[in-house]
Structure formats: structure tokens, C-alpha cells
Design a protein around this nucleic acid. Structure first.
Lengths: 336, 336
DNA sequence: ATTTATAATGCAATCGGTTGCATAAATCAA
DNA sequence: TTGATTTATGCAACCGATTGCATTATAAAT
């Protein structure tokens, strides 16, 4: 098999009695080639199970048709980005595959500054998809500097121009909060990720909008922040319980934090959802298996992946910068 | 930046006043080149931030230095393989990176039969790492047929020769069971994955060995199988509770199944671990967050990944077939 | 019938490396 | 001093595609 005799377009050319160029053009469906010649060449290619040599084509076209999915080096423990990243990778992969692009997965050390160089200037990839949350801005800067095409999962910085896909965080915050209001809750808390993250600010804005529309006061006492880790969720919850014992609901920026927060609530002798209702964010697989099963905001992750792939390719081909946000929905389970 | 003037070895050659061949050899540390020439060329390369062109080198060497991580197309819901696969990918990626190999991630349709052809005969990858559980045997057959190098996560079929890495399932089963015996449990059940899977058979053997060594009877009544999904875990547990109400412990082949089984136990009005102790398998991240936190068998996944990478590369270079198993350990939490 | 436009194909250069073989310079033995 | 080695380098072919330009055959126009 691997010793097959027809491996290159030259082989096909010989069989068809034409030149290499003709075979190349025929296989690429060039209008320069006559229909019957095309048909004959294609038949031969199919018959001999011909596959074009990728490195040769890439060298010749000076395009790799490969994009890098950039993620941080893994730690011992799962982080949200990991679980989330896995799901989104599926979407990206299928989006890329349908356009005949390959997906290289690279794990970068947060302190490494020339990884982009190493992949882009070697012609190994044509562009990057950035998921990594740590040092994202540093990486963005590096990519802009070397002029490498990329797209990121997240909100763009105000003055910079690059492609992005992000969740509709405003609506997410609003949906979660409206649900809690609809449940008749009066003192609804907010536990965010880091306050400097634009995503978090948008979710907070959604929370505030919903409260405002319902005629409820926005009380700074009820607002706390963590860093997306589970322990930070538990800690923030404890602070809330202390500051505002009358709290009867809370919207938390990640499922991981929410699950830890629920433990903290129980430790404090309160029940979920009877005493305190909680809504999480992301709808990771663990949300369904938590105790009680978590009501949460689901992002359409496969769609996000598909868009990341498509829009990056679009950008590669046309230079068009897109910034889109994907829809979110409320998934009601037992915790609220 | 991308308009840099020195992009090829020919550029370097001009600057150094030598020929392309000399530059190529110098950068590859060939003994044919004099030390000072080497030094000069390297200095130039460093100074101009030279990166060698990958497609060109790949074409020339007829090696891609890229391997494919093969996984199935993703479904809506997580499967064990997914979570597990994510962790192992980290290990593989770092193992490959340290040997300067790239990792392509490809999602194959279980019914697609020529994906291997498409990646191997095009020179896009030099070999494959197979994780996907569905139709693994079919894929193995396909790869053997086209003579493509690969390594799989799992146990090799008796008469076939190919590289594998797998967990030490025998010890895993034994550790789990011994722990339950040590707790003083008398009626210890076993819930396996599909009985035709060699991994499952080994875990069962470990379970039986432990019981035997402790002088306990092996009772077929206490043995049930599922398919690794959570619902199948709950169902199997219900059957056990019905058949053998006196059961006081159970070793379950996956964390996902175990978590669902614990729900089933509670539904039946029994407590975990007081009435029935449970030990899972895999130590997925959810194990830590389950209710109660799950005692389970942890596989050294990063190591597994590293070995998959290293042994495949070894095989590519020397043709040496390796079959190794990685250690497992018991992680004690609250469920047993 | 001759010129001109059109369609189909081939030639040969190019993409950026690697490598076998020839060659030149330096070292050594006789 | 001269031929045999050893060491360092260059030449040119090759890896397998793509593509600008030249060429030929065919159809249309005059």
C-alpha cells in the first residue's frame, strides 16, 4: 500500500498521457482544462486512490491550511477553561474540517513570548485561535506585533481591531437574574469572576438591568468577586452570607464557583434552593450532576466553535474583521 | 515583521558568504561543518530571528514531524473518553513538544473508513494516537492495512502486534476491592463497563483476586455490567439492590457510573457510605465534587500521555513495538 | 484563403529546504 | 617533494506540488 506506484501528480500525468500542470489544474478544477481531460484525470486519481502531497502543496502555495488552537499548558487540576475548551474544540474542529483546514493544538507556556513566531513564521500555521484566559492580552499583543492573523474567544479591547467571538454576557446576566426575580426573590446577590474582565462587567450589567427593570434596588453589599476557581466561589459566598444574611438568591459567574458556593451555603445551615436559590454560568457537564443539579446559563458552545473557525478563515481570505456574540439560554434545574 | 528580508537559508547563506548547503548543515549541526563556520551561521540565524520553513523541510525529508491525535466526533453530551481524553491530550502534547513533534487533532466519523489514508498518504502526519473507544478495532484494522504507524490507549488484541499504553486494570480492580475489604465490608459488588472489553475483564480479575485473597466468596449475583454511561450505572445499581439487598459495598468501573449509582442508592433509601460504600474509577474532576466526594482509582494520566507520545516516536524511529501499562493509585475520599 | 481570437495544453521556473557527489584546501606519511 | 588522507565546502539534483508564459490546435471573422 505505502509502496503504491502512483503517488504523485507526475504518476497520474504519465498514466493520462498529459503533463503535470494539466493534472494539477484538473484536480483543482481549473477552467483552463477541457471537460473530458478533467474527467479522465479525475477517474484515474480516484481509481488509484490518489492523495495530493500536503507539504509540497503547502510549500508551493505558501499556505499551510492549518490553524493553531492555542491553549495554556495544563495544570494538575481542571479549570473552567479546560472543560469549556474541550467542548469548543469539537465545534472548531468541525468548522475547520468543513473548510478543509487542519487543527494543530498547541499548549503555550504563559511566559513564552515567541511561540507565535515559531508557528507562524515557519509556515506551520496560517492563523491562531486563542482560548487561553491567562495572559490573553499579552498574547494578543504579541500576535498583533508579528502581524499574525488570529481570532479570540472573548471581548475585544476598545481600541484594537481583531476578530472575536464571545457569549452574550449581558443577556446571560439578565436571564439569570430575571429568573430569580420571577421566583419572587428579593435579595439577589452577584458573585462575579475578576472584576477587570469585560465579560464579568457585562454579566453584572445584565444583572443590574434586570433588577432595575423589576424596580429592585441595586445594593453594592450584594456584589462580590472571585477568580473563577471553586474555592474563590466558596469564599465569596461566605462573605455574602456574613454581610447580608438575609440574602435569598445569588447569580454566580461560573458553575465551578456555584457548586462550591452551594457547599458553603449548606455549611452555613441554609438550604438550596429553599433558602437561597443559585444560578450558575456555562452549563458544564458537572452542572447536571451537582447536588442539587444546577440551574445555569448555557452558551451555545458548538456554535461558538464553528464561528471561531469560520470567521478566522474568512479573515484570512478577505481581511474582514468580525466581532460576534453568540446566544445564551437559561437551563432550569433544581438549584433555582 | 513579516516583510523581514532574511527568511530562507539562502538569505543566511548570502550574509555568511557560504552556500545553502553549508547553512543547512550548520543549522542541523552536521559534523561536516567547521566549528567557526557553524558559530558564525548560528549567530546570524539568531540575530535575524531566523525560523526554518516547515513545509519545505517536510517535503524534502518526507517526514511531517506531526502526529494525529484521533478522537471521535463529539456528541452533545460528555462521555468519559472526552474528559479523560482532554487530560491525556495535555500529556501527549508535552511529550510530543519535547521531541519537536506537532500534534494535529482530528475528529473522525466512526463510519469513515479512509480518514487514515487522507492523513497519512498525504504526508500530513507520520503516525496516529488512537483514543476513541467506539470502533477502535475497526480503526486499528484500517491502520494496519495501510501500514500506518500508530499507538493506542488500551490493551492489544492477542495476536496483533502494535504499540499500546494502558492502565494497570488488574491492580486497579484489586486496590479498589482491597480497600472495601479493609473497611470490613462483606458483600462487595462489581459494576463493570461492557463485559467484552478487555480492560473490564482485567478489573474484574483484580476484584476476584482480592476477594479470593481475603477468603471471601465470589458471588455472580454481585456482578453487573453497564456501558460506562451514567444511566447504565444507575440501572445496574438498581438491579444489584434488588437481587442482593444485603449488599454493603460496590466497586464501579467509572466515576460517571458511580455518581449515578450513588443517586440510585439514595433513592432506594440507603446511605453512602454508611450503608453502601462505593469506589469509582478514573478520578475525573467531577469525582472530587460529587456528593459525597468519590473514593476512586486514579490513573496517572499525564504519564500515560507522555508515554503514548514517546513510544510512538520511538516506534517511528526504530520500529520497536512497546506495550506498557501505567500505575494506578487509590484516592480515598468520603464515599468509601 | 488568410488573419485573429479562443481554448487546451505543455515547458520550465519556483516554493525552501536536504543530501550525494565532486572538489579544494589542509594535514600527514613516506 | 609528492601522493594519500582528512576536513570543509560547494554544486546541482531532488522532494511534489503550482503557475506565468509560450505554444499549438481549433473556431470565428474578414
Amino acid at each position: 500500500m505505502s509502496s503504491k506506484s502512483v503517488r504523485t501528480i507526475a504518476d497520474i500525468a504519465r498514466l493520462a498521457g498529459v503533463s503535470k500542470s494539466t493534472v494539477s489544474r484538473a484536480l483543482n478544477d481549473s477552467p483552463l482544462i477541457g471537460e473530458e481531460t478533467k474527467a479522465k484525470i479525475r477517474a484515474l486519481a480516484r481509481e488509484h486512490n490518489f492523495q495530493i502531497n500536503a507539504p509540497a502543496r503547502r510549500l508551493s502555495m505558501r499556505k499551510s491550511r492549518t490553524i493553531a488552537f492555542v491553549t495554556h499548558a495544563y495544570h494538575k487540576e481542571f479549570s473552567v477553561a479546560d472543560l469549556f475548551g474541550l467542548e469548543i474544540m469539537g465545534g472548531i474542529s468541525s468548522g475547520l474540517a468543513s473548510r478543509e483546514y487542519d487543527m494543530l493544538v498547541i499548549h503555550v507556556d504563559p511566559n513564552d513570548t515567541k511561540w507565535a513566531h515559531q508557528y507562524f513564521d515557519t509556515g506551520r500555521v496560517d492563523g491562531f485561535i486563542l482560548m487561553t484566559s491567562t495572559r490573553k492580552q499579552t498574547h494578543v499583543k504579541a500576535l498583533l506585533e508579528i502581524g499574525a492573523p488570529f481570532i479570540i474567544w472573548g471581548v475585544p479591547q476598545p481600541k484594537q481591531k481583531y476578530c472575536t467571538v464571545c457569549g452574550d454576557n449581558l443577556t446571560g446576566g439578565r436571564l439569570a437574574t430575571e429568573h430569580l426575580i420571577g421566583l419572587g426573590r428579593q435579595r439577589i446577590g452577584f458573585i462575579g469572576g475578576p472584576s477587570y474582565e469585560v465579560e464579568v462587567q457585562h454579566r453584572l450589567a445584565g444583572y443590574e438591568d434586570a433588577l432595575h427593570d423589576a424596580g429592585q434596588e441595586i445594593d453594592q453589599i450584594l456584589i462580590e468577586y472571585g477568580d473563577f476557581s471553586n474555592t474563590s466561589g466558596a469564599d465569596a459566598m461566605k462573605r455574602l452570607l456574613k454581610k447580608a444574611p438575609e440574602i435569598d438568591a445569588v447569580f454566580i459567574n461560573s458553575d465551578l464557583m456555584a457548586i462550591a458556593a452551594m457547599d458553603a451555603i449548606r455549611e452555613a445551615g441554609r438550604r438550596v434552593p429553599e433558602d437561597i436559590a443559585v444560578v450558575g454560568y456555562d452549563d458544564l457537564s458537572i452542572a447536571e450532576h451537582s447536588n442539587p443539579p444546577l440551574t445555569t446559563i448555557r452558551q451555545n458552545i458548538p456554535l461558538a466553535g464553528k464561528l471561531l473557525a469560520q470567521n478566522l478563515i474568512e479573515y484570512l481570505q478577505t481581511g474582514m474583521v468580525t466581532n460576534v456574540s453568540i446566544p445564551v439560554e437559561l437551563v432550569i434545574r433544581k438549584s433555582a
